[in-house]
């Protein structure tokens, strides 16, 4: 009887893991991190502590689907800098540049945030997901997914992603190197709300990032003043911004 119970546990546990689609989980969690077709805008405040020094940068983010425009607003000397996301391509536009400069989402933007972190998240488009295991964090059950980049234009090569079973919100991410070493860890909080299809859903309010190799390196990305907005077609096109 004892062996039967143990055997049944493993059978059912595997069935319950197998029933969960990692792609669906990822798609659901993306919605609360900006991965939606509707127009959104918010203010990103990025506070960074490096080498004992604290810096603050602010950005106005406008996002629609896989496109986004991120305007630097603070400090004053960065005003006028615009980061443009068109699908998987990314550009930096500056008043003193003759033409937009193509940049990599992988490159560091400021502090521990990469360029790709600042706008909305479309992990379900950029990564293939595999369900690794289930894990309890603070007495809440989480699915642990291993995300692998589909192309080399993604922000990270691999991500270990914790998604709350009940809320389907991503609560933690380990950003991994190609060899699987943890480079950075991020913790997410969801105190914002947006209306999506007539339903109010939680939206990310804070992304806390810490460097695993350097204890003194930390960044907090806050999502403030979240609004749904309507944007014209072509508003995010790099050629229009250039003009």
């Amino acid at each position: 009887m004892k062996y039967y119970i143990i055997f049944s546990y493993f059978i059912f546990a595997n069935v319950s893991l197998a029933q969960v689609s990692p792609e669906v989980l990822l798609k659901e969690s993306d919605k609360s991190r900006g991965g939606i077709e509707d127009g959104l805008s918010w203010v990103s405040e990025l506070k960074t502590r490096e080498n004992g020094q604290t810096t603050v940068r602010k950005f106005l983010v406008k996002s629609k689907g896989t496109d986004a425009i991120v305007e630097a607003t603070e400090p004053l000397r960065t005003k006028g800098e615009i980061y443009v996301f068109n699908d998987r391509n990314m550009w930096l536009v500056k008043p003193d540049l003759k033409k937009p400069v193509s940049i990599s989402p992988k490159a560091k933007l400021t502090g521990l945030a990469s360029n790709g972190d600042i706008a909305s998240t479309w992990y379900s488009r950029d990564y293939t997901a595999a369900l690794e295991k289930k894990e309890n964090i603070k007495n809440e059950s989480h699915y642990v997914l291993l995300l692998k980049a589909k192309t080399n234009t993604t922000t990270y090569d691999q991500i270990r992603y914790w998604i709350n079973e009940k809320t389907q919100l991503a609560t933690k991410a380990d950003f991994l190197s190609l060899q699987g070493d943890v480079l950075k860890t991020a913790i997410f909080r969801y105190e914002n709300k947006i209306k999506l299809g007539g339903k109010s859903i939680p939206f990310v309010s804070e992304m806390y990032i810490e460097d695993k190799s350097r204890e003194d390196y930390k960044s907090i990305l806050k999502y403030i003043d979240l609004k749904t907005s309507k944007y014209k077609t072509g508003e995010f096109n790099i050629n229009n911004i250039r003009n």
Binding site: T55, L97, G111
Partner: peptide
């Protein structure tokens, strides 16, 4: 020919010049 230099400034912020 024209090109651009892009990288982090000394305060670790992304910057670019022509």
């Amino acid at each position: 020919f024209d090109a651009q230099l892009v990288g982090l400034d000394f305060e670790s912020n992304l910057n670019a010049i022509d």
